[in-house]
Design a protein around this nucleic acid. Structure first.
Lengths: 241, 241
DNA sequence: TGTACATCAGTGAACGCGCGTTCACTGATGTAC
DNA sequence: TGTACATCAGTGAACGCGCGTTCACTGATGTAC
């Protein structure tokens, strides 16, 4: 047990030992409760029990902290999707499973937006700092994007890459769409852009429900709108099985 | 010409005569240039050439000003849609026209988001103050909504109603979908929720392009993503003509 | 038609707030010899 | 193994900023008699 002392033995001492992560965690919690506007550097430091100045040893400024929160929020979204999908047991009918997975992911996406609203808003707030570039299926020449992206990179670009692993939620979506094609439930001619369509649909619905004109639908109408929208989206995409 | 003096003759005098509108206009301009965060009561007053305090004769607080901006931004969106639709001349084939109108409106929606980004963000920013409730086609019992809505109303609810006229953009969408049904291009069984689906799709795409992982697509890929997404959405909805 | 007076629509100074950020600093840590 | 010293990771006070909002006020307007 002696090898693992580093973190715990340092806690409480003058040197925190893991302050960057602690600040991140604290900032995420602020975002979870109050959305992107609640991500206040001073408050995050306060909650960790450290002076505000200390944060500047680990983040060049507030934007970088905000950016870290944004990335983490996107990760939590992906995790939510993944764990919803994991709950689906295979039925033996691969095609039906593939379609069902799209439903599941769609509902999980909306569910995340409605229950983790603060994180959802933080994930998609306008930060000024660019996200990694998504890689829609309709775009074949990835190299161009990667290039273009790294040219437009902000000052310290090491925390930005263009790998798919950086956008796990999008990776999940791509996999789901591929699965539809593999099982013959999505015509290959419709595969291009199908991921962006699916994403746009659930993302737009989430936003309309949160901040748009659907914000005050009574609960059961809200659920009906969600079900119906996802139904129509899937029905428009897949070929009947 | 003597009857119309009121406004102009008062301008420059101690009493402005139309300060509420002037502040609104000023605030809208701030929103246009900098989004919802740029809507600063003091700055709006400054630009009108009036003390900040004066604004409090016309708005109870900053939220009410923000709300006015939000409403106006939604109006401008509707106007953009309408004028794009007006540019389409009838071809004689009503069914084809109805489908084309959906394309046109979809592209105009995205276009508005991309060119009037500040206003678009302001229209859909989280304000804390509720918008009028949209009235999705899948919800038949309007009276329930209206009731529920007015119960949950904020202190001074006279500028909030639940009429369709208050959500002109949504009214346009409803009309387009009805037209699809009338011309036989949308199966009546799919009519319910079709408006919410269409709205979600373009709204989601707009947000992903502005603040999401599609934000940094190179221009021509961006245009391809827009075209393809709207194509797929329409294709999934209408019956081939 | 003139006048007294209530009301309306402005003014300008000030308040408190909390933020991001900078500064000069100091205690803890790790490393070269 | 001990020691000198560079570097690292914190501290606390302070700055400037601009905001929303309140206060006591005053000049302009409109109305009753």
């Amino acid at each position: 047990m002696e090898g693992v002392t580093t973190l715990d033995s340092r806690r409480g001492s003058y040197h925190h030992g893991d302050l960057r992560n602690a600040l991140c965690e604290s900032a995420i919690e602020l975002a979870r409760q109050g959305g992107p506007g609640a991500v206040v550097l001073r408050e995050a430091a306060r909650r960790v029990g450290v002076s505000a100045t200390a944060a500047y040893r680990h983040f060049t400024n507030h934007s970088e902290l905000m950016y870290a929160v944004k990335r983490r929020a996107l990760d939590e979204l992906a995790t939510a999707l993944r764990s919803a999908l994991d709950r689906d047991a295979p039925t033996g009918d691969d095609g039906a499973d593939a379609v069902r997975d799209v439903y599941t992911a769609g509902h999980a996406y909306i569910g995340f937006a409605l229950t983790e609203t603060g994180l959802f808003r933080s994930a998609f707030t306008h930060s000024g700092w660019p996200l990694p570039v998504a890689n829609p299926s309709s775009i074949t020449d990835l190299s161009t994007i990667t290039e273009q992206a790294s040219i437009a990179e902000p000052p310290r670009p090491d925390w930005v890459t263009t790998n798919h692993t950086d956008l796990p939620a999008y990776g999940i979506l791509v996999r789901l769409m591929d699965e539809l094609v593999t099982t013959g439930r999505l015509a290959p001619a419709r595969r291009d852009g199908a991921d962006v369509l699916a994403w746009s649909t659930v993302h737009g619905l989430a936003n309309l429900l949160l901040d748009g004109p659907l914000a005050r639908l009574p609960e059961h109408h809200r659920q009906a709108a969600i079900d119906r929208t996802i139904d129509l989206m899937v029905a428009g995409l897949v070929t009947p099985g």
